[in-house]
C-alpha cells in the first residue's frame, strides 16, 4: 500500500524542515509549500490526504486556502490541520468552523502532533 500523502504549508523554513522530517519518519509521503499559491497548486496536482496549514503567510492566508479546499467538490474530503501562532479562541473557532479537523497552537509538541495525525489518517 502506497504511503499516505501529506502537504505541509508554512512560510518558515525551519518549521517546514522539522515537519518534513517528522512525517517522513512516520512513513508518510511529504510535499511542502512555502506560501499559499504553491499550496493551492500542490493541492490540485497532488491531491494529498491531509494538509498541515499555517495561517499567517505573506500571500494567501491559511483560512482562505481551507475555504477553497472545503468548497471544492473534488478536494473537500482532504483533512485539514491548522498549525498556527494565532492563539486566540476566536481564531481557533473560525478554523474549526471552516471545516478543519484540528487546530494546533504553535509552538507545538512533535510527539502529540504525530499521534493526532496518525489517528486522523487511520
Amino acid at each position: 500500500m502506497a504511503a499516505k500523502k501529506i502537504l505541509v504549508v508554512d512560510d518558515d523554513p525551519y518549521i517546514l524542515m522539522s515537519l518534513e522530517f517528522l512525517m517522513q519518519k512516520n512513513g508518510y509521503e511529504v510535499i511542502v509549500a512555502r506560501n499559499g499559491r504553491e499550496a493551492l497548486d500542490l493541492v490540485n496536482e497532488e491531491k494529498p490526504e491531509l494538509v498541515i496549514l499555517d495561517i499567517m503567510m505573506p500571500d494567501v492566508d491559511g483560512f482562505a486556502i481551507c475555504k477553497v479546499i472545503k468548497e471544492d467538490p473534488v478536494l473537500k474530503n482532504i483533512i485539514i490541520v491548522f498549525l498556527s501562532a494565532k492563539t486566540r479562541e476566536s481564531d481557533q473557532k473560525k478554523g474549526i468552523e471552516l471545516g478543519a479537523a484540528l487546530y494546533v497552537f504553535k509552538p507545538f509538541s512533535t510527539r502529540t502532533l504525530i499521534k493526532e495525525i496518525n489517528q486522523l489518517l487511520e
Binding site: D12, I15, S18, F21, A85, P107, T110
Partner: peptide
Amino acid sequence: LYTVTHELRTPLTSIRALTELVHDN
C-alpha cells in the same frame, strides 16, 4: 502584546520541534 508573542512563537516553534526531533531520534 499579542503581536509580539505571536512573533516570538515562530522561532520558539522551530526550536522546540527541532530539539524534540533530535532528542527523540
